[in-house]
Design a protein around this nucleic acid. Structure first.
Length: 780
DNA sequence: CCAAGGCCGGTTTTT
DNA sequence: CCGGCCTTGG
């Protein structure tokens, strides 16, 4: 279970004299297992330390050993250590490994957790300092957007032009940068048609009335508390004598400020990170934090962990060669002592389906004992994609050939509609004033309470300053609703009253209560009767939800857990191939990794380049680096020359990242699927692709050569038809030499309306809309 | 009040 | 091409 301790599982434990016992129980061995760099990072307990830990260099080991060392030398007691991670997974792993090292349970480490869970816990203690009650509820992004939408509509703003989604994004960014409505710089006040700042302020007001916070607030409020209340700050500075931060390259500005406040004074802060693995800038992460560490924390000791224990040499060299193309980096030289191993394999396929088919074939071949090569279990294999839409092809293919797979990081269990609905019922039952939850389920399942009735309830609630449930009760009993809505509301209010009483009664099992709520509300029935194909799955999920309740003492505790630990915890032990995004793969490793879809536009992703230019490109490259470095023994990069994108066939160039892989460490597979075995596993690959002309290795394929050659040989015949650019920027005629942002220079071959057929020198033949090209002489 | 059709948008995603 | 969301018409 997660690193969230809000539910009290470990947080409320007594502060044990853990280190003393640890010593009795187990002799110090952890130091002997460290290399010199790791050892230095572990043993430098005082003052700021930056551990620059490359991929696979034993960073978690160093971090956990450091905690063990702090405890074992009695430098700190467990409750004096603040250790923060980003994900529950990381927190859980850290806890387990400290336990392993010390050979005991770490019940007494209350301050090891995610930024969010630790802040949530602290904020419960100090909620009143920011105008909240300690039982505040934590909204997820869905609630957040619904709330913003209400505000936008209430302010008479055209929601279509100015979406809640956009506003949520703007506000999140400000919160990431620790900007309260009052602090937003004037230069940014024009955002959202000059309305963003006042709307932000309104939103914060509304949250306060609801006694609610969003994720960003957890950090921001705690920051406010520490900044404005010297006594509280002093208290925590004295308490958290040693601070450890995992994945420092992913911290945002609010988190950075928070850490600085807490560590100023003793300065015992140890940050671990890798600037080359910073892939979350779009979520507010600020690589600058790690790049600036030595300036921010004067006298900092910087330790580089450069010995890689994960990947074989070719894989490591390929990754290092690739990332060397990035400019803004601290720079590390990773090395390994592992034996030879395979080169990174590179395969070119005709189209996306072929790619899935080929990889499926490879995986099957890797199962059975192909003579001379190692076999890989399904759970040792991962497919890492750039975008979720790439997953479909693999799922289809694997279903077809009966290859067990699991998609990691898909829509999470607690984010599914039916689960969120059920939780909303539980929320209202526990706290009848939870308006957002009430709103969500007031007419789900349909019970005849439509827009009009809901608006009346809202209005009355606002004007009288009462909750929606109370308002509904008043209107229903006063006969102020339409007949159908009125009777439905009376029944619903009555039920909630009863459920609330049951929730308060300690004698009643919360599992029975949950079951009753779902049955009596008609919610389970709604899905049982639904005729959509996914209905039965949803009923299953509801059952699973009730099962998950068993691990908690009451509904309240469960709801608190869910708010922060949005994970699907049903882990089957069956062996399966993992399919996930590159982002989701960070921190994981697999013996064999497939990296499909290395095509310009997809990876690096076009939007990333468009929006962030060179910075975007460098982040994409780091993503590629993360991908390759997940592999222990076998890494296979592939690309498809053609891909169906939003129903349109698109011809793609191989990713520039392919060119950046050092040739000496790459094994270009000859024509996978054609029977010319280049790699060792290919002979059993599906030969259905054999007839496809253009499948060949990247650099020597006939198709590739043809593309290269074409521009030199073909000269268009000057033509008659002329395209009129609708934006009146230029007119084109057959034979014109033109320039395109993405495809480079080429000649216009044919003109159809505003569409041009262009032979590009590098990219080959494309159909392009006229306004996307400029005459070559105008290209900068 | 609800179901069917039109329209837009469309990377990555933890807490 | 697909899904979510909103509008429209019954």
């Amino acid at each position: 279970m997660g690193g969230l301790d809000e539910t009290g599982t470990t947080g409320s434990g007594p502060e044990l004299p853990l280190s003393a016992r640890a010593k009795e129980m187990r002799p110090v061995t952890y130091l002997d297992e460290l290399n010199p760099a790791q050892r230095e990072a572990v043993e430098t307990l005082e003052g700021p330390v930056l551990m620059l830990a490359g991929a696979g260099t034993g960073k978690t080991k160093a971090l956990t050993s450091r905690i063990a060392h702090l405890l074992n030398t009695e430098t700190a007691r467990p409750n004096q250590i603040l250790a923060v991670t980003f994900t529950n997974r990381a927190a859980r792993e850290m806890k387990q490994r400290v336990q392993q090292l010390l050979g005991m349970t770490v019940e007494g480490m209350p301050w090891l957790g995610t930024f969010h869970s630790i802040c949530a816990k602290l904020l419960r203690r100090h909620a009143e300092l920011v105008g909240l009650k300690s039982n505040y509820c934590i909204l997820d992004t869905d609630d957040q957007k619904r709330l913003l939408k209400q505000i936008i509509i209430a302010e008479n703003i055209d929601e279509k032009k100015w979406s809640a989604r956009l506003l949520a994004h703007i506000i999140d960014e400000w919160k990431n940068r620790a900007l309260t409505p009052a602090n937003v710089p004037l230069s940014e006040s024009d955002a959202f048609n000059h309305r963003a700042v006042p709307l932000y302020a309104l939103y914060q007001e509304r949250l306060k009335t609801l006694n609610a916070v969003d994720f960003g607030d957890l950090l921001l409020h705690m920051l406010t508390v520490l900044q404005d209340h010297g006594d509280v700050l002093e208290n925590y500075r004295r308490r958290f004598r040693y601070i450890l931060v995992d994945e420092y390259q992913d911290t945002n500005i609010a988190q950075y400020l928070w850490l600085r406040l807490l560590s100023r004074g003793h300065g015992n802060v140890c940050c671990v990170g890798d600037d080359d693995q910073s892939i979350y800038s779009w979520r507010g992460a600020n690589v600058g934090n790690i790049l600036r560490f030595e300036k921010d924390f004067p006298g900092a000791k910087v330790v580089r962990l450069e010995q890689n224990y994960r990947s074989t040499p070719h894989i490591l060299a390929a990754a290092s060669g690739l990332i060397a193309a990035n400019r803004d980096r601290l720079g590390k030289t990773l090395f390994t002592e592992l034996g030879d191993g395979e080169k990174v394999r590179l395969a070119s396929l005709w189209e996306g389906e072929d790619e899935a088919r080929w990889i499926g074939g490879e995986i099957e071949a890797m199962q059975g004992g192909i003579r001379g090569s190692r076999t890989f279990g399904l759970d040792e294999i991962a497919i890492l994609v750039r975008a979720t839409r790439q997953m479909r092809a693999f799922e289809d293919r694997f279903l077809a050939i009966g290859l067990p797979y699991r998609v990691i990081g898909g829509p999470r269990f607690y984010e599914r509609q039916e689960i969120r609905d059920a939780l909303a019922y539980f929320r209202v039952a526990c706290s009848p004033t939870d308006d957002l939850a009430f709103e969500r389920i007031v007419n789900t399942p349909r019970r005849g309470v439509g827009d009009k009735a809901q608006q009346a309830i809202q209005l009355a609630a606002r004007s009288r300053g009462i909750s929606l449930l109370e308002s509904a009760r008043a209107l229903a009993s006063g006969g102020q609703l339409a007949a159908r809505a009125g009777s439905a509301m009376t029944a619903l209010v009555e039920r909630f009253d009863r459920w609330h009483r049951m929730a308060l009664s300690p004698s009643l099992s919360h599992i029975e209560l949950a079951t009753e709520i779902l049955d009596e509300s008609g919610y389970t029935e709604m899905w049982t009767l639904a005729k959509t194909p996914d209905a039965s799955g949803r009923v299953e999920n509801l059952k699973e939800l009730v099962r998950a309740l068993e691990q908690f003492e009451n509904l309240q505790g469960f709801l608190e857990h869910v708010a922060l630990v949005m994970e699907n915890e049903s882990e089957s032990s069956e062996r399966k191939v993992s399919i996930m995004t590159l982002h989701a793969a960070k921190g994981l490793e697999f013996p064999a990794v497939f990296l499909p879809g290395w095509e310009e536009g997809l990876f690096p992703h076009q939007l990333s380049l468009d929006e962030n230019g060179i910075k975007g490109l460098e982040e994409e490259r780091r993503l590629a680096y993360v991908g390759i470095t997940r592999a222990e023994e076998l890494c296979t990069v592939s690309f498809a020359e053609n891909r169906l994108v939003y129903g349109q066939w698109q011809a793609n160039l191989p990713s520039r990242f392919i060119d950046e892989l050092p040739e000496a460490h790459v094994d270009v597979l000859a024509a996978p699927g054609r029977g010319c075995d280049g790699g060792g596993w290919s002979e059993t690959a599906d030969t259905g692709v054999a007839e496809r002309a253009a499948s060949a290795d990247v650099y020597n394929s006939p198709g590739w050569k043809r593309l290269q050659a074409r521009s030199a040989t073909s000269r268009p015949v000057p033509g008659r038809r002329t395209a009129v650019d609708l934006n009146a920027t230029a007119e084109f005629t057959c034979g014109d030499r033109v320039f395109h942002e993405k495809f480079g220079y080429g000649y216009v071959m044919e003109v159809t309306g505003d569409k041009l057929d262009i032979e590009f020198e590098r990219a080959g033949g494309k159909k392009v809309i006229a306004r996307f090209v400029v005459p070559a002489e105008r290209a900068s």
